[in-house]
Design a protein around this nucleic acid. Structure first.
Lengths: 104, 104
DNA sequence: AATCATCATCGTAATATTGCAATATTACGA
DNA sequence: TCGTAATATTGCAATATTACGATGATGATT
């Protein structure tokens, strides 16, 4: 136990849950907001902005990256993160359709 | 550790994360879908529909109820759950604004 | 080369979540 | 009142998540 049962549910259902899971932590929401505000990217500053240790921020960044919401471009010693808008847009659609589906 | 730091983030950020957290489990997404499909309500059937034990479903229902997304009306020995559309609509707005804010 | 800055990863402690069996609880019908 | 059906709650085991210090890896600076 402790493991989420996934084989029970439809693809659609799982997709909504996966999208939501990425946004289910305030640090990840804050990181996404910050990255998008900086238009381009920036990186180490996230640690300062968010108020968590570098290791923790890096972990959250990995979750967001694995979900395909951001891209990291290496620039010398620093890494520039920026939104992958198309994927983010898809996330938006998934959630939107879920809400609309239930509210119709 | 293991605890999410919340005092660091803005109200808006925390709100998005809280909404997302409710939807971050496929069982809860499935339950919400099922309840809304049944227009009115129904209840014990959820257990069968979702494929988890009664205890587990009841737990998930509590999470959804605590978030204010559903209401349970007692009808004899069974409980009829139905969406509280206004709250659900608010959830929808929170997420929508988050996505729109980042994509603009 | 030696050092520093930036980031990722590893290891680990603390806590949260998931899932279920067992056990209440509540309401109804016999 | 007894039995039963429908839910909720409790207690627990398994696993996941969160957070951070320490350690690597890599490129820049001296």
């Amino acid at each position: 136990m402790g493991t989420t049962k996934t084989d029970i549910h439809s693809i659609d259902t799982i997709e909504v849950a996966q999208v939501a899971k990425v946004l289910a932590h305030p640090a990840r929401v804050a990181i996404l907001k910050y990255i998008s505000e900086q238009e381009g990217c920036i990186c180490n500053d996230i640690t300062e902005e968010v108020g968590l240790s570098q290791a923790t921020v890096s972990q959250h960044l990995q979750v967001i990256r694995d979900a395909g919401l951001i891209q990291g471009n290496v620039k010398g010693k620093s890494v520039c993160y920026c939104l992958s808008k198309s994927n983010f847009d898809q996330f938006s659609v998934v959630m939107d359709q879920f809400f609309k589906g239930l509210l119709k």
